[in-house]
Design a protein around this nucleic acid. Structure first.
Lengths: 272, 272
DNA sequence: CCGGCGGCGTTTACAACGTAAACCAGCGGG
DNA sequence: CCCGCTGGTTTACGTTGTAAACGCCGCCGG
């Protein structure tokens, strides 16, 4: 009911193949800079470049490998040079997550106003965030975990600008204030849960893929857990895209319910 | 529809006060050990004691403050002594999350079999996990973030024993194998999202409480975001318990749907 | 033309971290 | 008696984040 067409693909594609939110062909990123010869990639060093390099670095080497000195080396510069542009490592990470969620603004499939109805708006937004999460699996836990600026700005939609967009979109589409806020919360936690789980699973999958051969039977002693072994096949298949879609649909349905229930009684309701 | 009575409280308590899952009166925990005089708390030093101390330490000083040397000091011992019982810091953290989720086994309100129906089972389990999350807000992000042992063991229910319990509970209550697995995923991500958001919010709240005075109006320039300021009041109220309950109810309803739809067609269905 | 000066990157330095390796105190069994 | 094991300590090393001082170099007023 009331589902917006998938923004990327022709409708009705097979559910198993070609996740529309997955990054198309991001190569393995051979990126072995390790303080390459000076003169490589030297270019003025401003804050944006630093953040960009940090993102690239985390994406390809993992968060724990990011170190001031190493990041400096990637940029062909000494560690301390970074401190001219960033107060410290912690704030650098803050900047990184900010940069990453800012990718939403550049996404043409995500709109800031609910021009085609609030369901379309939420659907596009959700997929936009999912695209980000899948593009930066190492980073997304950070996005989710880092304390929000204000207590009420909940993780995935970190910027106030998006919260504003969200709330106006919903209140402009027949949601009462209370319902809009409730919707915001439900939506946030839905996104966070699904995406965090998805990227963590993906992360494990690739880690297992680059070290081991190919699903080497089972690692621990599974003797105690017959049901787990019986369902192992089913548990291993990756249906994240479909599950995401379905849970999102369900959430939207639930929100429609909330919307109809909770029209602001004191406020004459805007169109329909 | 089909909701199990709240395991802790008499039904119908006021929604605003007295969250049944919140730790009753966890004091501010003045715990300034910082290498107290030796002879304090000296007792044989085994792995369990170490993990316990680590948990206590993280709960009261935050994850980033936990250091091998400091943990040693708390236990009245030199840092290197810990390495007799724990291979390294990373594994210590693994042990910590394992210990924390093991609290579920000791929780009398959480059952490992669905003796009173699967809805009751899931409800009790969810509240059990929520209790853990609220008791260890600094730790829960770690529980959520740490890569699971096996790819299919998704975060909040980390141990295979619980996965086994979950799956047998559901398959024993009329879920097909596929439905049980789908339910497992939906349930996991639901728990993860809600609880992670809740603790992160809580964390910010207490951080703000111990540094600032009392909600000093607004921090950044809110001029650009009129809807946010208008709804600030609503956004600030903490309805986590009620929201959790409602979302959980909704999920259970959805799972009931899944259960009825997706009975295993080839397998003669077990009772009802 | 030139002297200084401000922005930007480097050097040096330090405390704290995780951890390897050697060391040492007891102590129970040949 | 001494041997070796168990459990804790000492020492040491490499790496981290970051403070502070230093040096280069291009710009700008005299």
């Amino acid at each position: 009911m009331a589902r917006a067409a998938d923004p990327d693909e022709p409708a009705g594609s097979a559910p198993r193949t070609a996740d529309p939110d997955s990054p198309e062909a991001r190569g393995g990123a051979a990126f072995v800079v390790t303080s390459g010869p000076p003169g490589t990639g030297r270019a003025a060093l401003d804050r944006r470049r630093i953040l960009g390099a940090a993102i690239e670095f985390i994406d390809s080497h993992g968060l724990s490998a990011l170190t001031m000195r190493r990041l400096g080396a990637v940029l062909g510069v000494e560690a301390m040079a970074l401190y001219r542009y960033v107060p410290g490592r912690e704030q650098l990470l803050d900047g990184v997550v900010e940069s990453v969620v800012d990718e939403l603004y550049g996404d043409p499939d995500v709109h800031m106003e609910a021009a085609h109805g609030w369901q379309d708006y939420l659907q596009r937004l959700a997929h936009g965030v999912r695209r980000i999460a899948l593009a930066h699996p190492e980073l997304f836990p950070l996005v989710a975990t880092r304390p929000p600026a204000a207590p009420w700005v909940r993780p995935p939609l970190r910027s106030l600008r998006w919260v504003e967009s969200f709330l106006t979109a919903l209140t402009g589409s027949g949601f009462s204030d209370e319902s809009a806020v409730a919707a915001y919360r439900a939506y946030s936690s839905f996104l966070l849960g699904h995406l965090l789980l998805e990227v963590s699973q993906k992360g494990v999958a690739i880690n297992a893929a680059d070290t081991g051969e190919a699903t080497p039977a089972v690692d621990p002693d599974l003797g105690e857990y017959p049901t787990v072994v019986r369902l192992q096949e089913l548990l291993s298949v990756d249906e994240s895209a479909a599950e995401f879609e379905e849970a999102l649909e369900n959430l939207l349905g639930r929100l429609e319910h909330v919307r109809r229930e909770g029209r602001d009684p004191r406020d004459p309701d805007s169109f329909t």
